[in-house]
Design a protein around this nucleic acid. Structure first.
Lengths: 358, 358
DNA sequence: TTGTATGCGTTATCAT
DNA sequence: ATGATAACGCATACAA
């Protein structure tokens, strides 16, 4: 990196120009009361110069920098973008800045970002891992850094986690479809890296590599609802895939290739649901008549949303993460926060036609 | 902000523990060659302590911090999220970090962010304004800070702008619809704050408050294509609105209320197009048979996109912004970059049925 | 190649 | 309430 021509004013310059000592200036900037005549002089020079104290120099002296870090798996994914929005909003209202990194879905890149962040000036870090629980990269880098983990649970012991009640979400989604007379419900689980090749989640639930993922909790809720309704679990109705539009397309093809006449589908994201819907329509299915679809999403300013969905509060999640992190930064206790979810019935789910009911 | 317990190791600690002087340590961290025996000692202590040099202290000495700023109007909007992805990727590959702020569509918040950023440790700033050209907040705050403006043109004289060829995009979109035999083409212009109340862009094109917006360039391309085809401009086919799904819904209602039988529509974003399409279908129109839709979008990993669109290269735009900014940071010359656009024909546009052709 | 000593912009301590 | 000065973590000019 080339040398930086920062022809910035320093507190010494302001002292010289205003005739007030640097100590008084420092007190002024830190909100202590000073002589009104001095205050007037200072304000005048401040207007002329546009001087702002340097965060870096302040940070050296052992102060907080007012900068918090945020690592997301993929900033282009609306899910994480909404969390980021919440983080940035709460940080801003708190006078803090956000250093942001996107892992682009890659554990390698995530590792690189954490490495960079650790040599930085962060007061704390909000971390949404791409990685599996047993494979968090370079935790040692965090050391004494206040840390909050968001949108995941049970990743690192002793660290506060902020997450949704995924079990309840899966339960509500399934129960809603059941209440519409739909008993053949597919569950499209999404992971950043497929954690089991045989596509049957149930068999793999105890492996540490897949615990603590949001899809897993939702799947457990799905199982509970099925059990309550007395419907046996059929692994063929489960597809394990990724988070993209193309994965939804793929899931529809897979379910069709298994010769299942499913009449309800639960998808983890909007993109997956869109992909599934598009492909299902190509296969000649009607949505929601033949197949009703429920997905997980946040409805931020989507006045005219058409999908039935389990509402996530992602901006709130981001805000809550900052609040929790700031408790840690202030040396206070902090604990896990589990956010509630709600069912919102829209246009992609409806009662199964009586003739098709068993 | 509470005091920060940074029980971090300092270069002095490492010097004491390793028995190597701080000067040698500093040289080691800056890539100069030192005695191998010293290097071994240092590496050993580094492993034990996890020490990383402080960016803040380095920055004080007039060095680059390796941190660049990014201000976007709304990080939850995929358009800006993709640019942010490009910025973060290029920055990371360059060993830089990104301080990120979202204006949430508000000039007030934007002003606040710029204010905060100016007292920070940035080497430079990539700025995507919400604000109108004549109303950029606190430009003075930037002062000597290297600055690049992205996704906008002609905002601040002497500053490099990175933007798409919007005129060409509007032209291509319109010409495509014309080639399908569609002559009644609506143009839904989007702004963060509506710049003209009477909804006729043409009358307001000279007002400084609306120049330099992307919708305007696209509109000029629309006009050029119409003119080439010998079709008179009808302001009733123009709707000025916002960027959201609800604005697309609104636009459909407005066009219907004007009793226009439009058979082609150009929308600025995916969200607007979705809203328009949903509402148009409620009105009984078929897409694309009755009304064909073209929008502006980036197709990043959307394997199965259904909308006909003008492809924008947003990740590239973000990367190019960082490259340009780094030229400035290094004290080199930098200039505007105009990125090309391309038409991608998909499922939302088709030839008008011959019977309906004039 | 190495170590010492000074300076960077700010805050904190101490007299005044 | 104010001003002089030491200290923070690091880079560097200079002497060794």
């Amino acid at each position: 990196m080339a040398p930086n021509e920062k022809a910035q004013y320093s507190i010494k310059d302001i002292s010289r120009l205003s005739g007030v000592s640097i100590a008084t200036l420092s007190r002024y900037f830190n909100g202590q009361s000073i002589r009104p005549s001095n205050e007037r002089k200072i304000k005048k020079i401040l207007d002329e110069t546009g001087y702002r104290p340097s965060i870096a120099a302040r940070f050296i002296k052992g102060h907080a920098s007012g900068v918090i870090g945020l690592i997301v798996p993929d900033i282009t994914h609306p899910f994480f973008a909404l969390i980021a929005e919440g983080v940035m909003r709460e940080a801003r209202e708190n006078g803090q800045l956000v250093l942001c990194g996107s892992s682009e879905g890659s554990v390698e890149i995530e590792k690189q970002i954490i490495d960079r962040f650790s040599q930085s000036i962060l007061d704390g870090l909000i971390y949404i891992p791409v990685a599996k629980a047993e494979n968090i990269p370079a935790i040692e880098s965090f050391r004494n850094l206040p840390l909050v983990i968001t949108a995941r649970k049970d990743i690192i012991r002793g660290v506060p986690h902020i997450y949704h009640d995924g079990e309840e979400g899966g339960y509500l989604a399934t129960k809603h479809l059941l209440s519409l007379g739909r008993r053949n419900i597919a569950f499209i689980a999404s992971f950043w890296d497929s954690p089991c090749s045989n596509k049957d989640l149930l068999e793999n639930l105890d492996r540490p590599s897949i615990r603590s993922r949001s899809s897993v909790d939702r799947f457990l809720g799905y199982l509970r609802a099925l059990k309550e309704a007395g419907i046996p679990y059929n692994p063929d109705f489960v597809v394990v895939t990724g988070y993209g539009h193309n994965h939804g397309v793929e899931a529809a093809s897979i379910l069709k290739s298994r010769f299942l006449n499913c009449n309800g589908v639960i998808a983890m994201t909007q993109a997956v649901a869109n992909g599934f819907t598009a492909q299902a329509k190509r296969f000649g299915y009607r949505i929601p008549e033949d197949i009703s679809v429920v997905l997980f999403d946040a409805n931020e300013s989507k006045a005219d949303y058409t999908f039935t969905y389990i509402e996530l509060h992602l901006v709130t999640m981001g805000q809550e993460s900052v609040r929790t992190l700031n408790r840690l930064i202030e040396g206070k206790e902090a604990h896990d926060t589990r956010l509630d979810v709600e069912l919102r019935v829209k246009e992609t789910s409806m009662a199964l036609h009586p003739a098709d009911q068993p």
